[in-house]
Design a binder for these strands. Structure first.
Lengths: 251, 251
DNA sequence: CGGCAAATTGAGCATTGTCAATGTCTGTGG
DNA sequence: CCACAGACATTGACAATGCTCAATTTGCCG
C-alpha cells in the first residue's frame, strides 16, 4: 500500500486546516493500519443494522449514504468524495443506522474500529479535527433537511448541483464549474425526495433555461450566480473555511 | 448556581452510558464555568452567521434548530430536550450555520467556547462522549432527511410524534405514552416540510383514527404499535443504547 | 370583555407523482 | 463490425397529495 496516495493528502490537508497538527499527529494518522480496497459501484461499505468494525477513508471515487423506509422507498442522505473519512460513526456508535454504498468504483482505506478509538484517545488534536469533520457532515445533513423540506423541485436540484460544484472544486475535482456527476437520475431523485421522472423534467428545464449544460455524466454551470439563485444556495453550511483555504469564488 | 440541577444529572447519565467516565472526568465536566440563564420562548441562543462564543446545555425546557431559505420559508431541523448539550458546534466550528431558539421557557447553562475546547483537549474520554452526542444528533438529522424526503404527510407527523415519545421517555419526561408537546401546528409544519393547514388536517385524522389523543398541548398514544406503523418508526437511529440504559419498550 | 395567536374548515388549484410507452446509450458476444 | 440486452433517459396523459387563500372559531391572557 502506498501512503502517498493523493487521497491521504486530501485528508491531511483538510485536517490541518482545522486544528494545527504537530508532526507527531501526522505520523500517528498516517501510521494507522489502513487496508486499501477497490470497491465496485454499488458495493456495500456498511449496512444498516450492522455492528461496524471499521471506518473508511475514500481515496478515489464517490460513496453515498442512504436509508430505506418501511414501504421500500429509498432516501439518499449524503454523498462523499475523495478525502472524506466516511463512517467515523462506525468507530464510535454501536450500530449502523444507515447504509453506505459505493456510487462509483472506489478506492477506500479501511481502518479497524479499535485503531480509530485508540488514535482519538491518544491524540486530542487529531480527535478534534475528526470531530469537526463529523460536525460538518451534520451541517450538510441539516441543509439537506431544508432542501427536501422547503424547496421546490427545481430549487432542490439546483441546490444539489451547487453543493457538488463547490465540494468537488475544493477537492480539486472540478474545473471551471464543470464536473462529473456520476449519479443516475434515479439517484438524484432519491437524494432530493423526488421521482426519477420529475428529476428528468427539471433537468431538462434547467438545461433549456441555460442554467446547466449536460453531456454524458458531466455537468457544466455556465452561470454560477444564476444557478446559485435558483437553488437558494449559500455555501456557509459547508464550512469551507474549515475544510481548506479555498480558491475565492464570488458570492 | 446549583450544580445539582437535574439537567446536569441527565447529561452525566447520558455521557456515562457511552464511555465509562472516571471520577476526574466527572469533576472536570461539572467544574466547567457554567452560567445559568432562563430564556423566554423564542429567545435566540445562536443565530445563523454568528461567530458563536459558547455552547449550552439545556437544563429544562425545549429548544429547536432551524434555517430559513432565501424566499423566507422556515425549516426546523431538530428539537432538543433537557440534558442535551446543544450547539457543541458552537465551540468547534467558526460560524453558526443555523439558528437555535428556545421553544418553551428554558433554563440553559452556557459554557464559554474556550472552556469546552480546553476540556476536550485534556479529557479524551469526555471528548469521546460529547463527540458521540454530536454523532447521534447527526443520525437524527439523517432520519429527518428521510422523513421529509420519503414519507407522506401522515407518516411524517406520526414519525415525529414517535420520536418525541421515545426521546422524552428516555429522559423521564413522559409517562405512559403521554407527553407535552409544546409546539404549535405551524412549528410542526416547519419540522415536517408541510403547511400548518395540512398539519391540522392530518392531526385530526390521526385523532379520529384513534392513533393519538390530544388535549391542549398534550399527546397520548393509545396504541404505540399502530402509531409506530403509521410513521414507519424504528428507533434504531436514536442509538438509545448509547443514551441511557432504557426501560424496555416492546418493539 | 376585548385582543390575539392558534386552530379549524372549505373550496379550488398546482406541483409532483403514477403509469406506461418509447428512445438512447453502452457493453458484450457472435 | 453488427445485433442484442439491459440499464437509463425521455415523453405524454392523467391523478392526487398537499398547497393557497380566505373565513371562522377557539383558547388564552390581561
Amino acid at each position: 500500500m502506498n501512503p502517498l496516495h493523493p487521497g491521504f493528502d486530501l485528508m491531511l490537508r483538510k485536517f490541518e486546516s482545522r486544528a494545527p497538527l504537530e508532526e507527531e499527529d501526522r505520523k500517528a494518522l498516517l501510521s494507522l493500519p489502513f487496508r486499501i480496497q477497490t470497491l465496485e459501484p454499488a458495493s456495500y461499505v456498511v449496512r444498516e443494522g450492522e455492528h461496524p468494525r471499521r471506518s473508511c477513508l475514500i481515496l478515489s471515487g464517490l460513496a453515498f449514504r442512504h436509508k430505506v423506509t418501511l414501504d421500500g422507498a429509498r432516501q439518499i442522505v449524503g454523498v462523499h468524495i475523495p478525502g472524506d473519512f466516511v463512517d467515523l460513526e462506525g468507530s464510535l456508535l454501536n450500530i449502523a443506522d444507515h447504509t453506505v454504498q459505493a456510487l462509483t468504483r472506489c478506492e477506500m482505506a479501511f481502518v479497524p474500529r479499535d485503531s480509530v478509538r485508540n488514535l482519538i484517545a491518544a491524540y486530542p488534536r487529531l480527535a478534534a479535527s475528526m470531530w469537526i469533520d463529523t460536525l460538518i457532515d451534520a451541517s450538510i445533513f441539516r441543509e439537506w433537511v431544508v432542501n427536501v423540506g422547503r424547496r421546490d423541485a427545481r430549487a432542490r436540484i439546483a441546490h444539489l448541483l451547487c453543493e457538488f460544484a463547490r465540494r468537488l472544486e475544493v477537492a480539486d475535482l472540478s474545473e471551471q464549474y464543470r464536473y462529473e456527476l456520476p449519479m443516475t437520475q434515479e439517484q438524484i431523485a432519491d437524494s432530493t425526495g423526488l421521482t426519477p421522472v420529475h428529476v428528468n423534467r427539471v433537468l431538462k428545464a434547467l438545461s433549456s433555461e441555460g442554467l446547466i449544460e449536460r453531456e454524458r455524466r458531466f455537468v457544466r454551470i455556465p452561470d454560477w450566480a444564476a444557478l446559485r439563485r435558483a437553488g437558494g444556495f449559500s455555501e456557509l453550511y459547508l464550512h469551507l473555511d474549515q475544510v481548506r483555504p479555498s480558491r475565492a469564488i464570488p458570492a
